[in-house]
Every structure is written in C-alpha cells, then in structure tokens.
C-alpha cells in the first residue's frame, strides 16, 4: 500500500526477514513442550470452564497462599474447547468442566478416571435494568413483543434452555440464538435484547448491568460441574490437593458466594 521506493541503504533487511521467520517458526514449534519443561517443578496447571473464572481465580490464589513456592496456572475456556485440547494431549493437572458431557469426553480420551461433582447451576432470566419489557415469568418470554435471546441448542446452555421449555410446554421464538452464554448476557447488557436465558451465576457476576428474574421451572434442569485430577498429571499430589480444596468447605464457600448451588 505504501508506494515508497525500496531504499538502497538497507542491505540487511534481506537477511533479517528470513531470520525473523525462522525464530517465529522455532518458537511456534517448541512453544508447547518448552513451557511445560521449564515450569513443571512448581506449576500446577488447571483447565477450568469459562464460567468458573471468578471463583477459580480466587481459589487459585488461596491454594498458592497455602502452598508456598507453588504457582497455579489457570486456563479458562469453554468446556468443549478444553475437552478437545485434553483429547489432543494438552498438558494439564486438573480439569473442571461446566457439564458432565465434556468430562465424559476427557474420560473417553483416557485423561480422567474418576470425577466428582463440586457445584451446580440453574437457569435464570436476565433482563436489562428497569426490565423494559416487564418480564415476570417464563411464559412472558413467549410474548411476541419481547426480544428474546437464548443459547443455540448446540451450546450447553441451549440444551438446558430446550429442556426448560419442554418441561414448561412452551416454545420460544428468539431473535438470536448465540453460541455461548456470555454472548446472550452481552446482548441483554447492552439493551439490544429485552430478555435472555442465562445461568444464575452469570446474572450474579453482571450485577448492576442486568437484573435476574427467577422462575420456578428452573429447578427442574440442573447443570452439574465435575472436577478431576488428570491421570497423567505432572503434579498428581498437588492436583488432588487442589481438587480437595474445591470440594472442601473453603471451596464451597467461594462457589456459593458466586451463586453456585451445592452439588
């Protein structure tokens, strides 16, 4: 796009470029193994579902406080993405999933033997502050003037949405079916949607930007969060200690504070 003529005074550019490329390529090729090898002695790697970001960051800090010299490295992503990373051999010590389905995938990939449910979550209606469309019940979501945003059936939160709708004999017509619960929340936060179906914990985290409307039908569809120390963990003892922290009184207190229900 720049129409500058090549300047004759720069003979080194030619050699620099390939060298740069080689460095980038080398870094890309050795990146994965390099970091683990260097960090292995003192680092505990925890793969956790995106919805656990707040709670597990806190728990990671507590764990570090209780284990001087140990660093907890947290990797947050969608449970399905984490499960496929584990399937592809990503090095990790602990896996905490937002649903049992993706934990089963890790079991099928022989990365997990036993898992334990440490929390559960239910759906809640999120509305913008002031509730402009006056949504009070689940049935209100079917009113034609309510701009409803839900998770697509393919997403975990969408499967829960479908179950809730089926149990209540309702059928939702959404203006958008998002691929993640955070996208649903975003559309409610910026006021584009009048209502969205998200998890209780999402509403709690977005306090001030959205208001939660509880509906009784939610208790029929409970999403369970399992956690496991990986079979090939580099730090098996620490991994089990972290799992115990999450399952124990301290972990449960932190999770309850964020709106998670007991397993």
């Amino acid at each position: 796009m720049t129409r500058r003529r090549p300047r004759p005074g720069h003979p080194r550019t030619g050699a620099l470029l390939p060298a740069l490329f080689a460095v980038i390529l080398l870094a890309a090729l050795t990146g994965c193994s390099g970091t683990t090898a260097a960090a292995a002695p003192t680092t505990l790697t925890v793969f956790a579902a995106a919805s656990l970001k707040q709670t597990f960051t806190t728990l990671g800090q507590r764990f570090e406080a209780g284990h001087p010299g140990i660093r907890v490295r947290l990797s947050f992503a969608g449970s399905a993405d984490l499960a496929s990373q584990l399937d592809q051999g990503a090095p990790a010590d602990v896996f905490a999933s937002a649903d049992t389905k993706n934990m089963d995938k890790a079991v099928a990939a022989k990365r997990v033997q036993r898992s334990a449910v440490f929390a559960s979550n239910t759906l809640q209606i999120a509305v913008p502050p002031g509730n402009p469309a006056h949504v009070r019940t689940l049935a209100d979501l079917t009113r034609p003037e309510v701009r409803l945003v839900i998770c697509a059936p393919a997403a975990p939160c969408g499967a829960a949405t479908q179950q809730v709708a089926a149990a209540a004999h309702l059928s939702f017509t959404a203006v958008s079916e998002e691929s993640s619960v955070t996208d649903v929340l975003g559309k409610v936060e910026n006021g584009e949607a009048d209502a969205g179906l998200v998890y209780v914990t999402d509403v709690r985290q977005a306090a001030g930007k959205v208001t939660g409307v509880t509906f009784p039908e939610a208790s029929g569809v409970v999403n369970r969060y399992p956690i496991a120390a990986l079979t090939d963990a580099a730090q098996p003892v620490l991994a089990q200690q972290f799992v115990d922290l999450v399952l124990g009184a301290e972990g449960q207190k932190v999770l309850a504070g964020a709106g998670f229900a007991k397993p």
């Binding site: 697509a152 997403a155 691929s179 996208d183 559309k187």
Partner: peptide, 19 residues
C-alpha cells in the same frame, strides 16, 4: 446475533457447530 437463515452466516455456523 446468530439465528439460522436470518443472521447465522457460514463462519458463525462453523463456530457454533465446532462444539
């Protein structure tokens, strides 16, 4: 947003189905 036939284009469909 993302709704089949209205706003869900090919890249959005790929992103949704990858899970």
């Amino acid at each position: 947003g993302s709704l089949q036939g209205v706003t869900r284009t090919l890249p959005l469909e790929i992103y949704l189905q990858r899970e």
